[in-house]
Write a protein that binds this DNA or RNA. Sequence first.
DNA 1: TTAGGGTTAG
Length: 728
Amino acid sequence: MAPAVPALRRPLISVPRTPPPPLVPPLQNLRRHPFSRIPHEEPCDPPNSSATLLLRRAAALLNSAAQPSHLSQIHAILLSSGLLRCSPSLSAKLFLSAADFGLIHQAHHLLDEIPSPSVPLWNVAIRLHSRHGAFADALHIYDKMLRQGVVPDGLSLPPVLKACGGLPAPTFGRAVHAHILRWGFETDLFVQNGLIAMYAKCRQIPCARAVFDRLSDRNVVSWTSIISGCAQNGFPLEALQIFARMLSSSVVRPDFIALVSVLKAYMDIEDLDQGSSVHGLVIKLGLDDEPDLIITLTAIYAKCGQVHTARSLFNRVPSPDVILWNAMISGYAKNGHASEAVELFREMIARHMKPDSVTIRSAILACAQLGSLDVGKWIEDYTGHSHFKDDIFVKTSLIDMYAKCGSIAYAHRVFECIPNKDVVVWSAIIMGYGLHGRGREAIRLFEEMKCARVGPNDVTFVGLLSACKHAGLVDEGWKYFHSMRDYGIEPRHQHYACVVDLLARAGHLEKAYEFVRSMPMEPEVTVWGALLNACKIYGHVGLGQYAAEQIFALEPSNAGHYVQLSNIYASAGMWSDVARVRVLMKEKGVSKAIGCSLTEIDGKLHSFRAGDKSHPRYKEIFEKLAELERKLKKSGFVPHMGSVLHDLSMEEKEESLCNHSERIAIAFGLISTAPGTTLRIMKNLRACVNCHSATKLISKLVEREIVIRDINRFHHFKDGLCSCGDYW
DNA sequence: TTAGGGTTAG
């Protein structure tokens, strides 16, 4: 249904000699740009011959004025001599020159000096103010024009509408719409396009649609105005439907501005396939060298994870601005290319580009993912010398990064130095302690937060429940979950998943299953995954099988779940079922994710895979591995044979176990660092039972603290024990 | 004379 066009009020333009009503009363209250009035002389007598000569000279001077300062000097001379009053044409000339130089204050003042400005002069003044964002002044001038009984023309109204679009409420825009109807501009395409854009800017999409739908002729600007209006106001699908109509009508060819607006809609729905098809259209239309399109395409590819395509487009931009650097860096950071993000951040600095708070946060996020404490410290050091050193957003990112890089002490140091901690800061530190298995401290911080009168939000509870989960604090987690509604927070799927994990991992499998059945929403993979994981720990084949079936229906291509089920069968010695899972994996075309461990030595990351012999020092590494194995055996270490996927012989099992990537990373760390140095390792999978037991003992045998970040949490191994208390 | 866009803590 077409919305009602704003009601026509009583005529706003009055006949000459009758003072016209104001545009709308509140306009009087809009703040105007202050400008000083320069005192001038009384009007002079009709110009004599010497005055005429002066006026001619002044006009010639104006023609040759090359700089705004020249103009100001001429203005001052004419004012003080009183000549300006004698010649309206000179005032108009001076006004137009000021407008050309973009001197809005001076032009505004000069307009007041012209006794009866013509419509083109009013238009210049309105357009000048509208273009410079002085919307209230533009509307004041329009109002003044109406009060003087001047009827606007088709050129007056587009900048007036633009000014109306720059104000938060559509009040003035509606009044101008009434003027348009009254003076018969319904068929003026420029005016109608201005109306569409005005309503779109004022978030009145139904009104914009009504104007657009009534147009008999539409040009590319009409289409672009309505497409971008819909995209900007949260209606991307509507924007794309209109674009499809535009293409099918084949009357108007999209230009680069239209395509930028369309890409914005695809960016909002993160539909890269369709975004790529627009890229195809860009090429077909020969617009692929258009800088603004390259920039928009770079951002959309980066956001959707096609970082290589994004980077090749980025490289074509000669001088990317800070927003484009941010788009590329955060595109890398958010899509698993943390090293490239850090590298690009370094390049940005090397190219003397000034990062902003967003850049810094993206770079810190990349460090967090990389697990690189050295790079993280470098970025903190960098921000310490920048004006972001007190930025709470940056500080919060640092807390998260240090926690994820294995140093909860550094995270706490940053936390302590924040003066007015908001809920996000508290949530970040609570999450950090949880990640390190320090559930009691997380709970203490939660209570401190409440004492500080900071209310928790849903994310705080994710952190708190996950802290309880990692530390096995079942009663506390259960209690906090049930307190959420007291704070007006409705538990989301993530909270339910935490509780299922909490119950199941503590061995309450039946209770966990009942809890899943009582959930008010359909359980997702994370919930069934938590149950499956616990079934693996407690060897519950039946429930494990059931949970796995639910997962396979929801996420058939994730190898990790098949491996979990297979491990449940393997632990129970059900080798034919292990083989069945292997066949199933083959049929579905999924393969086991390859375990990979990273360790940072002297700022350089070294990556290892199971049985990896590609490292230049692999001979020394394997000698150290063999030495560790001998020491482990001598201390009575018995490998846990359930940690292998396939039905191998005992000897093969032992070999495949001690070649796991984290063991190679440990061996490399031992030969590369001084005695007593803490080893820090990041692993892409969950630590296996065997490696976990072995690492505990290794930490004691070699007298080293070993910190391992697995896919879920941190393990701090020291003196034969792990901070997780074997609960993970 | 009129239309557009990219980054953002847990």
